[in-house]
Amino acid sequence: MSEVSLTVNGRRVSASVEDRTLLVHFLREHVGLTGTHVGCDTSQCGACVVHVDGKAVKSCSMLAAQASGSDVMTIEGLANGGDLHPVQAAFKEHHGLQCGFCTPGMIMTTVDMIARHPEGLDEATVRAELEGNICRCTGYHNIVKAVLAASKTMSKASKGKAKKAA
C-alpha cells in the first residue's frame, strides 16, 4: 500500500491505496472527482487529462503514488467559483462539445496548450496539439474554433493585465 498525499484543486487529500492505483482512479474513487474520465486503455484518448504540477498529463498512465506530493488540478478546479474559465466559456459558446465525455480532457489540454503558446495559436497548431485527445462527436470543427477563441480572449486578458501592471 502507498500513502498518497496530493493537493487537488487547492485542497490537501491523502489516502492509503494499493500501489497499482492509477492517478485517475485515485481522483475518481478516493477523492470523488468524477469529471476526469477513462476512455481507453492505451493512453491515447485524453479523456483523463489533468494538470500535475502545472502540466497536462494523462492520469490513466500515472500511478497515484508517482504523483504523491504534487499539485493536481482537475476539471472541477478550473472555474473560479461561479465564473467559468475562459476555455470552458469558449467551449460552451462555440458548441465545442456534444456528449461531454471527452470534454474535461479537451478543456484541460486546451488550458495547457494556451499556456504554452502565449504568442497565440493558429488552426494547424491547434489541430496538431490535439493529437492526444479523441472526440467522436464534434468532428473537432467547433473544438478548434473554441480553442482559437479562448486563446484570443486569454491573450487579450493577459495583455490587459500587463498594461495595468505597467
Binding site: 498529463v57 495547457d112 493529437e131
Partner: peptide, 9 residues
Amino acid sequence: IGDPAVRHR
C-alpha cells in the same frame, strides 16, 4: 513524440 501530455512525462 506522442502528444503534449505524453511529452510532459
